[in-house]
Design a protein around this nucleic acid. Structure first.
Lengths: 194, 194
DNA sequence: GTCTATACATGGATAGAC
DNA sequence: GTCTATCCATGTATAGAC
């Protein structure tokens, strides 16, 4: 076992590229950001960069995966962070370029052949599962009216978060938390006062 | 006045191009559809096409405008079509390529300099206004609990429609009408049975 | 495995003739 | 108003050095 873990340097470089790409896209947005620019930031040539990724869309997809992973780790440290959606929104507000990237890729990934399709096809059900579990917990704690099945509510809440981000991308004065707060208020048990 | 209206032929050609672009994008999606292909469909060269539009994004924006206009005209014929959102969803389901185009452009248009920015910056407030007006009508008719101001509910419903389309783009088995129906149910007056 | 240099294909855009 | 010709940027593919 004298041999060190394989791909040691490569793995580091790969991460460096992903990080650089994330920063550039976060700063300058999806449009007008070329791979050559990312490569230059990493002091590497274009083909050097392409050694680590199959295509541009592959790189982009992995950027999103990396971001998810970061969020997941942070989530674990503070176990059962209740308001998952708030976390998503807060992070989105800090990095509009990544929100743009997310939305653009999601749209493009409607094509089954797109490299990011699998990512989204896995991500949404997983997210729904998580949110639904959280909702079930609240229901059992009597903090939620339970007329609508949690899975359906989860679908609804996720759509709400994605959709409000779209409006926010156009007009940054839009309050992204309000609609979710409104729905949660509608779901509150003692809601007859309205 | 022997002179015919100016740009007579040009206006027709412009519309033809827009129509062709709409069809191609609706069929093949946003990705991998070049302007040259659109030009070819119109028996014209690329620069010939560019004579009518400042840029690709300009053309794309006008495609969306045209689609809005078509919807608006149809809406007027059947006055106060109540379930506006249903109409949007139905149309979306028939033309996934245009949904993709819409979402992609909306994301890209977050940049204030983007040709489509103005379109979306105008569209969302107008839509909110329309939906809010419809909601006010329902509230006065006693068909709606009125705890949340109509403008906020409008923002919420629009976000819901946009967001659920995103999930649907990835997984076509997602029911786009369910979440809206669920929210409307939550808003129904006699909702204590849950 | 890691990376450079080079070449290529495609797509949007522009100049200028007709 | 439309074309030919051309340009430039970008993603991609290949050859090969270390």
């Amino acid at each position: 076992m004298a041999k060190r873990g394989p791909y040691e340097k490569g793995e580091a470089k790969r991460k460096e590229i992903l990080q650089a790409a994330l920063e550039i896209f976060a700063a300058e947005g999806y449009r007008g950001t070329s791979l050559r620019k990312v490569a230059a930031r990493c002091n590497i040539s274009l083909p050097g960069l392409m050694h680590y990724f199959d295509s541009k869309e592959d790189l982009l997809t992995q950027v999103l995966r990396m971001r998810d992973e970061t969020a997941r780790v942070r989530q674990e440290q503070r176990p059962t962070g209740p308001d998952v959606y708030r976390e998503i929104i807060r992070e989105g507000r800090a990095t509009p370029g990544l929100v743009e990237l997310f939305v653009s890729l999601a749209a493009a990934a409607s094509d089954t052949e797109h490299p990011a399709h699998e990512y989204f096809a896995e991500r949404y059900p997983r997210l729904r599962e998580q949110v639904a579990a959280w909702l079930r917990g609240r229901t059992e704690a009597g903090q939620l009216r339970s007329g609508i099945p949690p899975e359906r509510l989860a679908t609804l809440l996720i759509a709400l978060v994605d959709g409000i981000q779209l409006q926010w991308l156009i007009d940054r004065s839009v309050d992204m938390e309000q609609p979710i707060a409104d729905v949660m208020a509608l779901l509150a048990p003692g809601d007859a006062e309205r």
